[in-house]
Computed example of a mutant assay.
Amino acid sequence: MSPLERLRDAIPDPARDVRLNLQAVLQGGALTEPQRWGVAVASAAAARNAALRDAVVAEARARGLDAAVDDGLAAASLMAMNNVYYRFRHMVGKPGYSERPARLRMGRLAQPATSRVELELFSLAASAINGCEACVRAHEDVVVKGGLGEDAVHDAVRIAAVIHAAAVALEIGEEGAVEERGESAA
């Protein structure tokens, strides 16, 4: 049994739909296998659950998808920075901030391990989890214009949603396990 299968089995019964969805979204659809797993890696890293991230990365590497893993992790880390910065600019809505150069290094966008459009797809998933409207719109536009289309965007966001839900469900499971042992969760 793979680490991801073990983790999926650890999702508590109140979240059984998430358990089933986690298996389903990582199979088939409009995305290639490397695209699905790159999205999953970026999403798991953005969801900030170390056990889930490590299990998704291990599964993707076991499938020989090292380039997708590397770009997925790069996308998550870049979006951790960009989503805060661009969400601020969007929320404040003052032209003065938007007119200033970001001066944030993003060299990986110019030299991805996969392709530019795939790195943008992985960034879209992380941005959806991080809730940055400006980044979601920008990445969606690049992905669609890059030829992947709306079905690919839809599948990527479905994967991001389920991965994020799995992170929450696993935390719920950990909380319940602590309470069953009579320990304080705090």
Results as ranks from 00 to 15, higher is better:
L4F: 08
R8F: 02
R8M: 02
D9E: 13
D9Q: 14
A10E: 14
P14D: 09
D17V: 06
V18R: 00
V18I: 13
L20C: 06
N21L: 10
L22D: 09
V25N: 07
A30K: 08
T32A: 11
P34Q: 00
Q35S: 00
Q35H: 01
R36D: 11
V41Y: 00
A44F: 10
A45L: 13
A46N: 02
A46T: 14
N49L: 04
N49F: 15
A50Y: 13
A50M: 07
L52S: 08
R53K: 10
V57D: 14
V57Q: 13
A58H: 06
E59F: 06
A62D: 14
R63M: 05
G64F: 13
A67S: 06
A74C: 06
A74E: 04
A74T: 08
A80H: 15
A80P: 07
A80V: 07
R87T: 15
F88M: 01
H90P: 05
G93M: 15
G96I: 15
R100C: 12
A102Y: 01
R103C: 07
R103E: 03
M106K: 02
L109W: 15
P112R: 05
S115G: 08
L119W: 00
L119R: 00
E120M: 02
E120F: 11
L124E: 10
A128W: 04
N130E: 09
E133T: 13
V136C: 07
V136I: 13
A138V: 14
H139Y: 03
H139L: 07
E140C: 04
V142L: 13
V143Y: 14
K145Q: 13
G146M: 11
L148K: 06
L148G: 03
G149P: 04
A152Q: 01
A152V: 09
V157T: 13
I159P: 04
I159V: 02
A160Q: 10
A161Q: 10
I163R: 14
A165D: 10
A166Y: 04
L170G: 12
E171N: 15
E171P: 05
E171C: 02
I172F: 15
E174L: 14
G176T: 04
A177N: 05
V178W: 13
E179L: 15
R181H: 13
G182L: 03
A185M: 10
